[in-house]
Design a protein around this nucleic acid. Sequence first.
DNA 1: CTGTTAGCGCCTTCAA
DNA 2: TTGAAGGCGCTAACAG
Lengths: 355, 355
Amino acid sequence: MPTIKQVAALAGVSVGTVSHVVNGSVPVSPDLRLKVEEAIRHLDYHPNHVARSLKTSRTRTLGIIVPDMTISFFPQIIRGAETGARAKGYSVIAVNSAESPERQGELLSLLRSQQVEGILLINAAAPTPPGQISRVMDAGIPVVCLDRVPEGFPVDSVSVEDIDAAELGTDHLLAQGYRDIAIVTGPLSLQNERRRLEGYQRSLERAGVAFSPDRVWQGNLRSEALAAMCRERLSNPATRPHALLCTNGPTALGALRGMNDCGLRTPEDIGFVTFDELTLDDLFTPAITTLVQPAYDIGFRAAEILLERIDQPERDRDAVYTVRLPAMLRVRDSSKKLIRRDGRPAEVVPMRIKR
Amino acid sequence: MPTIKQVAALAGVSVGTVSHVVNGSVPVSPDLRLKVEEAIRHLDYHPNHVARSLKTSRTRTLGIIVPDMTISFFPQIIRGAETGARAKGYSVIAVNSAESPERQGELLSLLRSQQVEGILLINAAAPTPPGQISRVMDAGIPVVCLDRVPEGFPVDSVSVEDIDAAELGTDHLLAQGYRDIAIVTGPLSLQNERRRLEGYQRSLERAGVAFSPDRVWQGNLRSEALAAMCRERLSNPATRPHALLCTNGPTALGALRGMNDCGLRTPEDIGFVTFDELTLDDLFTPAITTLVQPAYDIGFRAAEILLERIDQPERDRDAVYTVRLPAMLRVRDSSKKLIRRDGRPAEVVPMRIKR
DNA sequence: CTGTTAGCGCCTTCAA
DNA sequence: TTGAAGGCGCTAACAG
């Protein structure tokens, strides 16, 4: 790899001049500039970012830690963050924590060693050791949390309006005539899962429907385990809920598998609404009603906030940015209206669906 | 951010000693080691990777360029590569080219500036300027191409056994009784798309089925455009093929949308097999028959090869590693057998499907 | 406008 | 086993 010195030698100028034409930091006379550019092209010179960073102590790099890049919600966030960062000349390096708090700690450390100027963090689902995040912030590296917001200490965050979104979905199911609705959640140790549960409860309450704790189906984020849970709880027709509200993609996949295993169809046998898109949800037969989170925007806004923190560390130093974006209800077939027979409120009779 | 100097000062030793305990490069007496470790903990010291890299000219970082991280095939590759790299103490930084050759060039340049020690590249679909890749290889940075292998010059590559895979899928459709099979591909400027087409042709030939060029439906990789194409070509029942073979995920999504728009159902109206998993393919009604590529393994193997090239630049210098992994046919409902009525070969009568 | 030079944080001889 | 010191490639003062 050629260095700035070699370029300077070939162009017959000093390294300072080369640096100036590369960075446009100071005007350079046209003839010298030309000679330098020629030398750069000839040597295929690429400035050594590492050396530059060491000198300027600016890497123009952001880190983003996601639990699992193969969950489609997260790559969308990354794309958003990447775009937001690139607009300001930053690049982002994306890494997977595999939902492990330990791995997350290592990655935090790795990113610090890499001298990223800021970190976008989507927490692992398992509880993170306290201080893991605040330690990096104390070191002067701004952190913005996305989607899964930690509790107990102040940190900027961007996520969806969890309570409203869950309320919206539950309202919709209620309006369609479903009364006995179970909520299928990931670990309730996650604040956003709890908030989604809260929205669900609020909606029931407003509608005067009794909340029953055993309609809260808490699982993990592995869809096989979820499927097993749902299979078991859906197997008895007598105790089966009329509809399911899933609070995220993996949960939804698990629930759909469980339903499938029990030979249940939606909406004929059971109404279905979920957070997050499932890639094929609109082609699914029936098409699935989803609460769509603005994943790309979450990434984009988070990057913006992070870059502002980097640019102006003093501004609003003691304030915490809390951005909550609205989710959108995309109504499709899986939540089609129920028509109840008079006097038999417990029996569920699905509307015939035109295709 | 504390530096090695501050640690040394606090521990009352020289920087050299600190470096030795951090890197384990030279034995250090237990008492000094303890003092140093204590100082590190106390200051929350993280070695400056940038400075270390500058000194050693080793960043222990790999770059991976993917066309679009939101296509689920690619994150799986990234996870594989990440795992392979991590096993050797390397981390990977993943970036999106958005299918743009220009952007890809910029990213190549960015990664070089970042001093990555090697690059995993999944080419953009649009034709890449010649020399773009060879230039980075000439600079001594090994490159391994994944999935989409460029032509015309030697470069290590890992991908699926395209021809065999397409042949496998086509054989399957033929065996199920479908004769008139259209292949829905992405741009045929991509070698792997051409090879998949070749496999399709081979299979037809072996079965004695005439190949018809207008059964090659070439599209791009945006599923809306694909859907429009399929909608148009599927609208006339008289000229409609009996089955579709899609060569990748985005293509499949487009084709499914097109079929849906035409009110066509699979396999009743049209048989369907596709490369790549579609997230919900097993829950889809009917479940979709897929040619599953070992995406994770492709990433893992590619990382291994790249690391070997980095470790032993001299070994097999003039050889080109060409790894082709087999795809797996996962038979589901969308390719269920056809039973034709006697004497009316053009009419397609699907088998009744048990659910 | 252009050249010279110190020093970013670290590793690694080399000497002690 | 430990300390001292040079230098990786670059930028930013500063001098000219």
